[in-house]
């Protein structure tokens, strides 16, 4: 999903709830994309991903997702990541209902 040296975040699904989480600068998992740490170089992004993958007791399926940094925090580049941030479009369920 992530290519080149674009801005990226580490994302995954939580082990128990299965919902979408992102990695913060403090090394916590957040449910709010705006709190995610943005990595702008390959080396730090890869290192953060490797460290996140080792936390298999907390999360499943870690990967790097491209984002666009804005003054309000990172915005998803791809529509899939936008849906993951929001929830399904047919019901007001998931993240959009929890915000």
């Amino acid at each position: 999903m992530a290519r080149g040296s674009a801005a990226r975040v580490v994302t995954a699904n939580a082990l128990i709830e299965g919902d979408v989480v992102w990695l913060t600068a403090e090394g916590r998992w957040t449910r709010d994309l705006r709190q995610a740490q943005v990595f702008s170089d390959d080396e730090s992004a890869s290192a953060a991903l490797a460290a996140a993958e080792a936390r298999s007791g907390e999360v499943v399926g870690c990967y790097l997702a491209n984002v666009r940094p804005t003054p309000n925090g990172p915005e998803p580049e791809h529509f899939r990541e936008d849906f993951r941030r929001r929830g399904p479009s047919n019901y007001f369920h998931g993240k959009q209902a929890e915000a």
Partner: peptide
């Protein structure tokens, strides 16, 4: 690990999808 668990959960119909299991 997830690698060990994944085939077990799949045999029992449990997927991990976009927003949840």
């Amino acid at each position: 690990t997830e690698e060990e668990f994944r085939p077990l959960r799949l045999m029992n119909g449990l997927y991990l999808q976009l927003h949840a299991y």
